[in-house]
Each structure stands twice: as structure tokens, then as C-alpha cells.
């Protein structure tokens, strides 16, 4: 009887693992194909099996994707656009995160007349689809003289991101006891000093969450990038699209694959490094005194 049970459990276990592995395989298969294809030369791709390992691995496709593939009329690879993305993402992430932290702190702990309404209105910003703001934003950027500039794209991402970053920080700070603020006020600390000395040191998890979120959102953005950038200021997502769609001679799948991986690499790395903080930050409970 006992033995039978044991077998049963093992069988169930095995079934679960089988299904898990199956799904993991299905999910990872495209990545595998991308990676192996990027290491093959075009002959091998044409003649060989899609799933086969490369016979004679070469970095040709990677080098070309990075430095010399054609994206439209230019043939400088993804490199310039990669740096464009970096120049957009870093300021946009930093500014929107800092503003979100301030907003969240004020909305959570310094309630004023209308603060709940303001928060509701900001929240509404999370649900506005990108497409709706395209035209008015284009007008605004034009009026500010920021059309087709990196600065303009940073501004767009900051504005669009504030709703999310504020929501994250506000909800995190609501969980911090208000008595800490009262005690600090009696100790003579000001609005900013309380933020700096008491709230910032408690905020590592939510900073990590917000930064990952904003980084992925902005790095992966295509729509704003394609609409508001000029020919020299396109982010990598737009360049990737152009690269894949530009065919001089035959289609070079290996170069396309390498380019796609290059474009996705930064977000992958961020997740691998900080992913566990992301989960931890989302579930972090109230702070005990």
C-alpha cells in the first residue's frame, strides 16, 4: 500500500516536471534558434536544419549587425542607435524615477486638499494608450523646439512614465507608518530632510522595481521612437525594424537574429541581475519600526 502511494507521488512529480520542461523548451526554442542562427553563415542557414547546432560558428553576423548592416540608407550597423537608446533611457529612467519618488512621498504622507483627486488623475494616466497622445505630443514637442531630438524623446518618456512611477512609490510609502513622519517633524526635520533621511533609506526595493520597469518600458518602446525621432536620433528598436526591412541583396537571417539579440540584451541583463529584487520589491511588506 505504502509503496504504491510512493510510486504514485513519484509518478505525479515526474508528470509535473515533464510538463514544466516541455513548456520551458517551447519558450526557449525561439531564443535557441535565434542564437544558433546568428552564429551560422548564410550558406549553412539555407542548406541546413533550423534546429541544428552551427557546424562552423562565426561572429560575422554579430559584427555586421553591430557595425555595418544597412538600416535604410545608412550602413553603420546598430551601434549608433544603441547609443541613442542609452542616451534616451538613462536620463528618462532617472528623472521619471526621482519625480515618481517625490510625488509618491507627497501623495502618501503630506495629504492636502485635492491630493486624492490628483492621485486619481495621475492614475488615469496609466490607462491612456500611447496612440491617444501622439498628435498633441508632437505639437508640444514642435512648440518647444524639441521635435526629432533625444531631449524630446526623454521628455515624452518622463511624462508618460510619471504616472507609473508615482503609483509605485505612493503605494509603497503608504505602507510606511505615518508616526515616523510625526516623530521626525517633532525632531525638527523638514519635508525634504524627512524624505532624505527616513524615506530614501527605506526605498531600495521600490527603486529597483521602478528602475527595472521604466528601463524595460523605455528601452523596448517603438511607437514614440518611430514617431518623435529624426534620422540621427532613432532608438535601437526603430533601427532594428529598419535593418530587418532593408534588403540589399538576399535576406541575411543570421544578421537579423544577431541584431534582435543585441537590441534585447540590455533588458535581459537587467532582469538577470536585478530580477530577484523585482519580485522581492513587489512583495515587500510594511516596514517594522
Amino acid at each position: 500500500m505504502n509503496k504504491f502511494n510512493l510510486l504514485n507521488i513519484n509518478f505525479g512529480r515526474a508528470a509535473i516536471y515533464f510538463i514544466l520542461f516541455l513548456f520551458a523548451f517551447i519558450y526557449l526554442a525561439p531564443l535557441y534558434v535565434m542564437f544558433t542562427t546568428s552564429l551560422k553563415d548564410i550558406e549553412e542557414i539555407r542548406s541546413g536544419n533550423l534546429m541544428a547546432l552551427p557546424i562552423d560558428p562565426t561572429l560575422y553576423a554579430w559584427k555586421k549587425a553591430w557595425a555595418s548592416a544597412c538600416t535604410g540608407s545608412e550602413c553603420k550597423g546598430l551601434a549608433p542607435y544603441f547609443w541613442n537608446s542609452v542616451r534616451i533611457v538613462f536620463p528618462a529612467v532617472i528623472i521619471s524615477t526621482i519625480l515618481g519618488a517625490f510625488n509618491g512621498y507627497a501623495l502618501a504622507k503630506w495629504k492636502f486638499k485635492g491630493s486624492e483627486f490628483l492621485f486619481g488623475a495621475l492614475l488615469f494616466g496609466c490607462f491612456i494608450p500611447f496612440q491617444v497622445i501622439l498628435l498633441p505630443m508632437a505639437k508640444l514637442l514642435g512648440a518647444l523646439g524639441l521635435a526629432n531630438t533625444v531631449t524630446g524623446l526623454v521628455l515624452v518618456h518622463v511624462i508618460y512614465g510619471i504616472a507609473f512611477t508615482t503609483l509605485f512609490f505612493r503605494n509603497y510609502y503608504v505602507g510606511i507608518p505615518t508616526e515616523l513622519v510625526k516623530a521626525a517633524k517633532l525632531d525638527g526635520a523638514s519635508f525634504l530632510k524627512i524624505f532624505r533621511h527616513i524615506f530614501i533609506p527605506l526605498s531600495t526595493p521600490i527603486f529597483v522595481v521602478t528602475i527595472i520597469w521604466q528601463f524595460t518600458q523605455i528601452w523596448n518602446d517603438f511607437l514614440f521612437g518611430v514617431v518623435y525621432s529624426g534620422s540621427g536620433t532613432q532608438p535601437i528598436t526603430v533601427a532594428l525594424n529598419n535593418l530587418v526591412n532593408t534588403s540589399v541583396g538576399g535576406k541575411e537571417y543570421n544578421v537579423d537574429m544577431a541584431a534582435a539579440i543585441i537590441a534585447a540584451l540590455p533588458t535581459l541583463i537587467v532582469y538577470i541581475i536585478a530580477g530577484k529584487y523585482f519580485v522581492r520589491g513587489l512583495t515587500a511588506g510594511a516596514v517594522k519600526g
Binding site: 507608518p177 515616523l180 525632531d187 533621511h197 527605506l202
Partner: peptide, 17 residues
Amino acid sequence: KDRDIAMVFQSYALYPT
């Protein structure tokens, strides 16, 4: 801060960090 008053809270409200 100008009233020169100190308060001890039920939850102590010590600065956790």
C-alpha cells in the same frame, strides 16, 4: 519644531534604518 515638545508614540516610531 518651534514648540519645543517631544513625544513618545505608542508604536515607538523609531527610524528603522
